[in-house]
Structure formats: C-alpha cells, structure tokens
Amino acid sequence: MAAVLTPAPTTTAVAARAVDAVKVYGQGATEVRALDGVTIGFETGRLTAIMGPSGSGKSTLLYCLAGLDSLTSGTAYIGDTNLTTLNDKSLTVLRRDRVGFVFQAFNLVPTLTAAENITLPMALAGKRADDAWLQTLATSLRIQDRLHHRPSELSGGQQQRVAAARAMLTRPVLVFADEPTGNLDSRAATELLELTRAAVEGFGQTVVMVTHDARAASYADRVVFLADGRIVEELHHPKLDDILDQLKGLGA
C-alpha cells in the first residue's frame, strides 16, 4: 500500500532535455551535422555549462532547446512540452513565459530604459510585472539604481545584469545564457558569474550556459563537453584545472 501512496517520480526534476537530437545544416557535399544524436537532460535548480571547441554544436544545442531553432530529428522538451510539435506562435509564447535568455551581445532594446527592458516579456504578454520581484532581482543583481537609464548609459557588465534580470523576471523554467561573459572584462565577468551563482542558490533558478571560458564554467554544478555534435564528457563540480585539462584533451 505504501508503495501506492508514494508519488511517482515526476519529470519536474529535469527542466529541459533533448532526446536523440540531430541538427543538419546544408545538403550533400556541404552538409554539416551540427548535432549528431545528443541525449541530455538539465536538472532543476542547477547551473550547467556546455563547453566545446568552435563548431562542436554547443550553441546549436542551446538554440534548439530554447525553441529558437528547430531539430532535423529527435525531440527537445522544456519541462513536459515537446518543442517539435509547436508552431511559431506557441513557441513564441513558450519563450516569453517559460524561458529566459542572456546573449553575448545586443541583449537590450536601445530605446527602452533598463526597467522597461527587464519587464519587456511581461509587456509583450500584456501582463503586469511583479514589482516586488523586480526590486528583489534588481537588488540582488546590483542594478537597483540603474533602472531608469538607457542601455547606452550602462557599462557592459551592467547591461548583462539587466539582461539577466529580464531573463529571470517571468520566473522561467530555465534561463539560457549564450557566452554571457564573452564581451565583458574579467572583473565584470566575475561579478556576473558570482551573481548568477547566487541566483541559482538563492532562488533555485535553473541556468544553462554555453561558454568558451573555463573560468566561467568553473562556477557550474556540471560541465558538459561537446565535440563534433556529440557529448564526449561531463564533469560535476569541477575545479578550473580539471576543465582546462579536459579542454586540452579536446584540442580546444
């Protein structure tokens, strides 16, 4: 009886996953298999880093999981939602309500203030932002006094933190970050990574980050290595040196 009362293990422990994901660009001689049968899940409440040399398929994996790009075959899920069955409109709504993004560059709409940029997904959905949550996020990301400035009046680090706040405002299932520190100096990068780490621990935010930077990856709970469209290795709670060794092995 007891076994009957025990809830069945739910899939909520995995925020997003890909099953046999294949992505092919081009045809014939110019065919490139950017993803070649990737199966992976991302656990809730953890910071996962995806690493690999240029052309290994790490960005493609991110875009396909985020619904920005479509798979050639295989399936991708956000929570329990199978992305491959959704049309453009449903994908858009999914991105808006359940996923957050931080890109390497051009993260903010130049004509809107920081606060307006942060609440943009809510505005697009025609909803009101949760002011208290906005203040909490702004404070924890240390941009509370920059909210009424335009992007051009913010430093690069501040811009990325505004983007991070925007990504988390809708309390998304997970946040995708594509080389978030790529354009930042090391001080700003460190600050962003520390604050991201704090968000993961403090708010239980799930984050998936693609990066080239071993130091950035060292903030992750788990580092997944890709090469030629396949997963070749993964490390848990790695030290910086472990990551660097692994990268050397991949020839990156």
Binding site: L68, K89, T92, R95, D97, F101, N107, L108, L124
Partner: peptide, 10 residues
Amino acid sequence: ALLRSVGATR
C-alpha cells in the same frame, strides 16, 4: 529579432 526571442509574436 531580440523582441521575437524574448517573446514578441510575429
């Protein structure tokens, strides 16, 4: 494209 990626519909 940025607007589209953060959830603006076509």
